[in-house]
Amino acid sequence: MMARLITYLRDHSRALKYVFFAYLVFTIAFDYFAERHVPHFFGDSIIGFWAFFGTVGCLGMAVVCKGLYNNWLHQDEDYYDK
C-alpha cells in the first residue's frame, strides 16, 4: 500500500513540483502577516529575509564544501589501505 502511494507520487513529480513552488510563495506571504518579536538583528525586520538566507546559505555551503572536496579532500576509498 505504502509502496503504491509512493510510486504514485513519484510518477506525478511534475505536479508535486508545482505544489512545492506554491508552498514557496506561501512562505513569503505568511511572513508578511507574521507577528514579529523585538529584532535580534537587522534580518529579523526584513520580509522574506530567511528565504534569501536559506537559498544563499544552501547554494553557498554546497559550492564551498563541494569545492573543497573536489580540489583537496577527496581520495580513493582504499586510500588508507595503500
Binding site: I28, A34, C58
Partner: peptide, 17 residues
C-alpha cells in the same frame, strides 16, 4: 507565528536550493 515563518522559509528555500 514569526518563528514558524522563519522555519517555513528556511526549509522551503533550502529545498529549492
Amino acid at each position: 507565528s514569526y518563528h514558524l515563518s522563519e522555519t517555513f522559509q528556511l526549509l522551503g528555500f533550502t529545498g529549492f536550493g
